[in-house]
Simulated assay, not measured.
Amino acid sequence: MALWEIDEIIISGIELIKHSELEPTFKKHILWNLENIPELYGFDAGMFNRTELDIDFSYERMNIYNVGYYVIAEAKKRGYKDLVYDWSAFLLNFREGYFAEIAATQELKEGVLKQVKLIFESLDFSDYEPIHLSLTIYQNGMDWYSEDQKALVKWFCTNNAAINNQNLEPSL
């Protein structure tokens, strides 16, 4: 089953970064990493055209959390709160199945996810409807999350009034 919602946020992230004012070489690295998320992390996604195929350029693989942070920061800067939410949910909800080996939870909390959380907390998502259940942030996590994953999501949602006003239990 293809994860169309992952395609959607990758495509949106690519378009956002393409039109950003980031330094061109840095932008090229981010775009390549975005385009290669499905292959790098084993997602059944990637039904889009790739543009970063410059054989004369040495691309650097970046940590998915850093790539996500740059997309989230640019989305905040440009007023795309939907991308801030969806990318935050992606980094949180897909960690256990795809990104757990990248960094320890505590390292993420003290580093890049702390920065993502600060951006997230600066916006009001009380009226936002995620594009898919898999990109919904549930304050208490989901039943099938490990205790570590639940604790990470709870930490992310702590002191965040905008998300605390949402329906926090999944509807089936």
Rank of each mutant, 00 (worst) to 15 (best):
S12Y: 11
S12V: 02
S12A: 15
I14N: 01
I14P: 04
E15L: 13
L16P: 03
L16C: 05
S20F: 01
T25R: 15
K27R: 14
K28M: 07
H29D: 11
L31F: 01
L31Y: 06
W32H: 04
N33I: 03
N33V: 02
L34C: 06
E35D: 02
N36E: 10
I37E: 07
I37M: 06
I37H: 04
P38W: 07
P38I: 03
L40Y: 09
Y41P: 01
G42Y: 05
D44C: 11
A45F: 01
G46E: 00
G46M: 12
N49Q: 14
N49K: 13
R50C: 04
R50I: 10
E52I: 06
L53G: 12
D54Q: 01
D54E: 08
I55W: 14
I55V: 13
I55Y: 10
D56M: 11
F57S: 06
S58R: 15
S58K: 10
Y59N: 01
R61D: 12
R61M: 13
R61Q: 14
M62G: 01
M62D: 12
Y65A: 07
Y65E: 07
N66P: 13
V67W: 07
V71T: 08
I72H: 03
E74N: 03
E74K: 02
A75I: 04
A75E: 00
K76L: 08
K76S: 14
K76W: 14
K76C: 13
K77C: 08
R78F: 10
R78Q: 15
R78W: 11
D82V: 08
W87F: 09
S88L: 02
S88D: 06
A89W: 05
F90P: 04
L91Y: 04
L91C: 14
L92D: 02
L92E: 02
F94Y: 12
R95D: 09
I102T: 10
T105A: 15
Q106K: 15
Q106M: 10
E107H: 13
L108R: 02
K109M: 14
K109I: 15
V112C: 03
L113T: 04
Q115M: 14
K117D: 08
E121H: 12
D124M: 03
